[in-house]
Design a binder for these strands. Structure first.
Length: 426
DNA sequence: TCTGGGGTCCTAGGACCC
DNA sequence: TCTGGGGTCCTAGGACCC
């Protein structure tokens, strides 16, 4: 009989996963306290589908990914509040969250907009986590759920359990191995961090259905059958750390800008304007990160919910790498000749790869004078001060809202990111 | 009929994450 | 009518080199 005995030499320091509860909804509630205790969801771009929901919304049966047009008219959802996503605000709150976490521990790692791994002291790690959560609450207004364990994967298990039982914190390092084994035995393997649908199906074929089954499995066999990723997950469930906390993130590999269009576009003239705007946006991000790109891939496609999907892409190389918006804007047109006239396209995207620090390559391209980049920087600055529509590059068009602009009809005010929309406190 | 062996680099695609 | 937008890592396989 196998007994769960994590970390046979369980000497690793404890770590926590701290997660903002329903991040987007929680931000909306800080901006508008009247939303507390109400069923609230946040919609994806174009008000497409639900991407975040409060506990109250989930209790009504709303699932993340549900299209808004299917929820909108259901009688039992009459009281549901839906908000357009306000990524400027979520980004600002995310920064405050991570800055606050960093005031508690020297070892932290930003895992996502709403999650951080935090190294904790061996003595009473729960007390430190407690302090951290109270401080996040006080400084940002955001509620959190945290899990403590000897490995990242077990901290994730603990954090899921905390949410499931409605507690702010679960500390597995204070549990007996027997109790941890019981928790793993009641955790479906599909809920383990790193186990998706494909692996769940494959593991079921080996009789592995729960997190405990996986923790007891032969990691070497799993590595040969799948990969080192699954091996690490398996060992971590057994209490052996394989993923250190606080590693410095690797340099960014790619930068993507893709969007559904608010309305279908079927003419080259209109698509040219779409691509110009997307390329300008991608270039803006590139400069914000201080990067140049060596390869741009641009694509357009029709709805993936139709049988007859049209998808066209084109690639343009830059030697030397560049971040010049005009070069990106004109290059993005490369995909236009492939477009089927009259076809209903509803998505476009720009993927930039081959990224390197700006100016790392000696400047040989005569057309790309430093003045062009200074102009780009000036436009970035103006857009930041007066809004995205204030200035733009010729081909992106400046006139009124275009048909295909993103829909955000239920947007909250930019309460903490715009001087003109500051929150009012009564 | 035989037709090395190893290394690197790059890309495409799979799987997963939030 | 209407169905998100990013990312990462890993592996396999091809091109190329000595």
């Amino acid at each position: 009989m196998t007994r769960y005995n994590w970390g046979t030499a369980n000497t690793s320091p404890p770590l926590a996963l701290v997660d903002v509860r329903s991040m987007f909804v929680s931000v909306e509630r800080v901006l508008d306290p009247a939303l507390r205790e109400r069923a609230v969801i946040v919609l994806s771009n174009n008000d497409g589908c639900a991407v975040a929901g409060s506990d109250e919304a989930k209790a009504l049966g709303v699932q993340m990914g549900d299209p808004w047009f299917q929820l909108r008219d259901k009688p039992h959802l009459a009281d549901l509040v839906a908000k357009s996503s306000n990524y400027e605000e979520y980004g600002a709150f995310s920064s405050r969250f991570h800055e606050t976490v960093a005031t508690i521990s020297a070892t932290t790692e930003t895992y996502s907009v709403d999650e951080a791994f935090v190294g904790l002291p061996r003595a009473d790690p729960a007390a430190t986590a407690d302090t951290l959560q109270a401080r996040v609450r006080q400084w940002t207004g955001l509620p959190t759920a945290a899990g403590i364990g000897p490995t990242k994967t077990l901290a994730k298990v603990a954090q899921r359990h905390a949410k499931a039982i409605g507690q702010p914190l679960v500390d597995l390092t204070a549990w007996s191995p027997h109790d941890v084994g019981d928790l793993l035995a009641t955790t479906p393997v599909s809920e383990v961090w790193g186990i998706g649908p494909r692996l769940t199906a494959g593991l079921a074929g080996l009789g592995i259905h729960t997190a405990a089954d996986l923790a007891f499995a032969d990691a070497g066999v799993l590595r040969r059958r799948w990969s080192v990723v699954l091996e690490r997950t398996t060992r971590e469930l057994a209490g052996v750390p394989c993923m250190p906390v606080g590693f410095t993130p690797k340099d960014r590999q790619q930068l993507m800008y893709s969007r559904m269009l608010g309305a279908t576009v079927s003419t080259s003239a209109e698509m040219r304007s779409v691509l110009a705007q997307y390329a300008a946006a991608a270039a803006r991000r590139l400069r914000a990160h201080g990067l140049d790109t060596a390869l741009m891939q641009v694509w357009i496609s029709s709805s993936r919910f139709r049988d007859d999907i049209a998808h066209h892409s084109a690639a343009v190389a830059f030697d030397p790498p560049t971040s010049d918006p005009l070069r990106l804007i004109t290059s993005a047109r490369a995909v236009l000749p492939k477009m089927r006239q009259g076809w209903p396209y509803n998505r476009a995207g720009i993927l930039l790869t081959g990224l390197s620090p700006a100016g790392a390559t000696p400047q040989l391209w005569p057309g790309e004078t430093p003045s062009r980049l200074r102009l780009a920087a000036a436009l970035d600055e103006l857009a930041g001060r007066y809004g995205r529509g204030a200035v733009g590059w010729g081909p992106t068009g400046l006139r009124d809202r275009r048909r295909w602009d993103m829909r955000r009809e239920r947007l909250s005010p930019a309460g903490t990111t715009s001087w003109t929309q500051l929150l009012t406190v009564r």
